[in-house]
């Protein structure tokens, strides 16, 4: 199954694209997708451990199931800033 993964900010910069196509057999979990992303795009290795994943516009745990119609996004730490 080819997943289209949305990338933002530093993840987009490192990958050089706003969308990353990743081959990942289903059924899969978020962690499986994370490994597939690393295999597909080594340029993300440095930043991926700091990123969360989102499924269908909601943060997802590593063991969450990814479906064929899931909207998958990589969410780098948001802009934060000292209070």
């Amino acid at each position: 199954m080819t997943l289209q993964i949305k990338l933002f900010a530093v993840a987009m910069q490192k990958a050089g694209s706003a969308v990353l196509e990743v081959e990942c057999p289903l059924p899969a979990t978020v962690d499986d997708v994370r490994q597939a992303v690393l295999a597909t795009c080594p340029a993300l290795a440095e930043v991926l451990p700091h990123c969360r994943f989102a499924l269908n516009d909601e943060f997802a745990q590593d063991n969450a199931p990814v479906d064929a119609d899931s909207v998958v996004a990589i969410i780098p730490p948001v802009s934060g800033g000292a209070s």
Binding site: A9, V10, Q13, E46, V47, H50, P76, P77, V78, S79, G80, G81
Partner: peptide, 10 residues
């Protein structure tokens, strides 16, 4: 530089 707390050195 994108600002991402916790990964400033990335």
């Amino acid at each position: 530089e994108w600002v991402h707390p916790g990964m400033e050195d990335s």
